[in-house]
């Protein structure tokens, strides 16, 4: 038992070093070869375009750390956007009231996932597959698919377009989110218990930790984060729509796993997730600016394929090294 944590720890430190190197190489490459990649405007674009996905990834990290998964966050973004639209337009609430209610709705929807997963002990993959469909369905049913809410309070829309101290507002919100999740996971006993649950739920229970409540928490936070992401998305697009956040759950999971968090739980770090988010955000923006890609017009396709490749390489690299080092050890 004693031998287990040590190699694991080395393992993930190594992963993040590797990822940081990759990120550095990627950024340097784009900086020199991609058209206008390093301009201030473009860097602001990168942040604004990936803030929602990044926030979802930050919230997904503790979920995966406990050995779970949440497929419903993208759909919940759609539902929260619609709720916000209904409250401001049909119910004529003030923006502030509507924001508060939307956040509450996110908490509640996250809590619903949490209740089924933690207290009924149902498999997270299936529960959130169900709510993935349910939340998007509720959003579509509310708007009958067709209704789009436009024209919001200009102060609210500033969230999506404006800068604050030279950085887009999303950057500040994202930084706050990153700080919150980093402290939660790495500096609190709660965070430690997530990791412990991911390693061994039974063992954690015998250690006297309330496993059910601790398992529930990341899902509730994910719900809240999805609501925040929905508000940012609405502000950026100037529209509240039922199809907000389509496909974002997979992007968030990709970022977390690329960042070195084990999909089985127990291993991972928030800074790794941050590198993962950055690697994907930079790739999406930069690849379409490389002259050859630009000419061929295949930026979107190539970005997806390279993300897939990056994911496999990041996962396979430590395993391959283990094979190689083990092979060498047996030879000598």
């Amino acid at each position: 038992m004693n031998a287990l944590p040590a190699p694991t720890k080395r393992h993930w430190v190594r992963h993040e070093t590797l990822l940081l190197l990759m990120l550095f190489a990627e950024t340097t490459y784009f900086f020199y070869f991609a058209r206008n990649f390093g301009t201030a405007d473009n860097i602001s674009n990168i942040v604004r375009h990936s803030a929602e996905m990044g926030l979802l990834a930050l919230a997904m990290m503790p979920v995966i750390l406990t050995g779970g998964i949440d497929l419903s966050v993208g759909s919940l973004m759609g539902l929260c956007a619609v709720i916000f639209g209904v409250l401001t337009h049909d119910w004529h609430w003030t923006t502030l009231q509507a924001v508060a209610a939307t956040l509450l709705a996110g908490l509640f929807a996250g809590g619903f996932n949490a209740a089924l997963i933690a207290f009924l002990r149902l498999p997270p993959l299936i529960v959130t597959l169900g709510t993935f469909s349910l939340y998007r369905g509720l959003a579509e049913a509310t708007t009958q698919g067709t209704k789009i809410y436009r024209s919001f309070d200009p102060d609210f829309l500033n969230l999506g377009d404006q800068h604050f101290f030279a950085l887009p507002i999303q950057a500040w919100i994202f930084a706050l989110g990153a700080l919150f999740f980093w402290v939660l996971v790495h500096r609190t006993t709660l965070g430690r218990s997530f990791r412990a649950i991911g390693f061994s739920p039974e063992g954690t229970l015998y250690a006297g930790i309330p496993v059910e409540r601790r398992t529930a928490m990341p899902y509730v936070l994910a719900g809240l984060t999805a609501a925040i992401a929905a508000l940012l998305f609405t502000a950026r697009l100037h529209q509240a729509r039922a199809d907000a956040g389509t496909g974002y759950e997979l992007a968030a999971i990709t970022a977390v796993v690329l960042g070195g968090t084990s999909i089985f739980g127990g291993i991972g770090s928030v800074h790794g997730t941050l590198f993962g988010i950055a690697a994907i955000a930079v790739l999406n923006n930069g690849i379409a600016r490389v002259p050859g890609v630009l000419k061929a017009g295949v930026g979107g396709e190539l970005a997806s394929m390279l993300t897939g490749a990056l994911l496999l390489i990041a996962l396979a690299a430590p395993i391959l090294t283990r094979f190689i080092t083990r092979g060498r050890a047996t030879q000598t």
């Binding site: 405007d41 379409a288 017009g297």
Partner: peptide, 25 residues
Amino acid sequence: LLFDGPTNTDPAKQNEIVENWMTLG
């Protein structure tokens, strides 16, 4: 000619491409 477009149904994608082209020159 630069040709690019959304490869998924994300409703924000076209906006992002326009914003990226603005910085591309």
